[in-house]
Design a protein around this nucleic acid. Structure first.
Lengths: 227, 227
DNA sequence: GTCTATATACCGATAGAC
DNA sequence: GTCTATCGGTATATAGAC
């Protein structure tokens, strides 16, 4: 699967995420026209991710956000109840979407070796499509309150679990051979994560997402495939 | 080399770093008694790292720092000229120390395979000794000004370079065989970095630094050692 | 629905007593 | 050297005009 195939298939858009959020919360959102609400939510969310990645969510003032999104201070508060609330909305909507997309896009393939390759590519290509979101989640969710920090930790463990489940199945079927499934899953996740944490480095070196995905697969397979 | 051997050998202490800083800057620091200055600097730096890791440097107010360090607001400003200055002092002193210790502790061993194992262990054990510092550097670098962000990027590339230099030497000598030295260095660094970025996870699973270091070595060697 | 103007609180930083 | 008290500025959040 190429990156282009993947990006055509998943079609993840900020507008979809905002529309989902609006429909699930129209009872508490004061704006009643869906089109207006969704359009402004998209502007707010995009501006938050952009500024959050550039200067950090905490350092971003709501005046900065007002300027970047094109909405006034007063208007912003029609869409969220506090700055913390804004962070947790983005966190919740984003991580739910990631979870759903990953599960939908990891094939019901029975061969563990093929399935592992698909999973690594799916995760890597998704983190490429949503690289700012992934970076934002990693850098900003540490400062959330307990409840939302828990969601963030669960999200980390969930994606790791997708990998280790495949590894375990492969070991059971005799296709894989490794000393420690849990640690193997951890380092695969670490390698995948590097792609969006060090985007500047890979861009500078002209490494494509496809090249990187294939490389992670090569390293992994040299370790777990039986000779 | 065990973790215990390493930690006895390097003996890195916050007090040493603060004393170095004090002696290099006694001309601009108002406090003239070295023992007083060093004691308070240690308290300030420890408190900053602790609060910075917990809530983020930006979210930490100087009143928080005053409470945690035991010094008053006024006293704090005898040791640094601004909050940004405090961040860059910690960044500069810490990364210089890391660089020096890594270079001192990576053997002049000629066998690339042995040298690579030593380098991975040295880096991992140092990040264990200074785990909060490493975490702090990674999370707060983005908030620095251009000059210090450049230092930080150089630090990232420096540690990667230590690895890729060994890899290149091994390829030249015919001991290693890999498709892409640069990418191999990147993923080794990514695996090493996971140790301090996800400390909570490894602690929860009772994975020791020695176990993790050996695992990274195993994964790496399965990929680069000729059959 | 969106705006401007403003309330209120806390920020980093400093002055001056001791 | 260290403290307390306080400065001006800016933050989040809101009230009320339109």
């Amino acid at each position: 699967m190429t990156f282009q195939d993947f990006s055509k298939r998943v079609m993840v858009s900020v507008e979809d995420l905002c529309r989902d959020y609006y429909r699930a919360n129209r009872n508490v959102i004061r704006i009643k026209k869906e089109e207006v609400a969704v359009r402004n939510l998209v502007a707010i969310v995009n501006a938050t991710i952009k500024l959050g990645c550039r200067m950090g969510f905490d350092a971003m003032s709501l005046r900065d956000l007002s300027g970047e999104s094109g909405l006034s201070m007063g208007a912003l508060y029609s869409y969220f109840s506090s700055k913390d609330d804004l962070l947790s909305i983005i966190q919740h909507q984003g991580q739910s979407a990631v979870e759903r997309i990953l599960h939908d896009n990891i094939s019901r393939e029975s061969d563990p070796a093929v399935k592992l390759r698909n999973a690594i590519r799916a995760h890597l290509y998704l983190s490429e499509l949503m690289s700012q979101w992934f970076y934002f989640f990693f850098m900003e969710t540490k400062n959330l309150n307990k409840k939302y920090r828990k969601i963030s930790v669960e999200s980390e463990l969930m994606t790791e679990r997708i990998i280790t489940d495949i590894l375990e199945e492969g070991v059971k079927q005799g296709a894989f051979d490794m000393t420690n499934v849990s640690l193997t899953g951890s380092v695969i996740k670490a390698m995948m994560q590097d792609w969006y944490l060090k985007k500047w480095k890979y861009k500078q070196r002209n490494v494509s997402g496809e090249t990187y995905a294939q490389f992670v697969i090569d390293v992994t397979e040299s370790f777990i495939l039986k000779q």
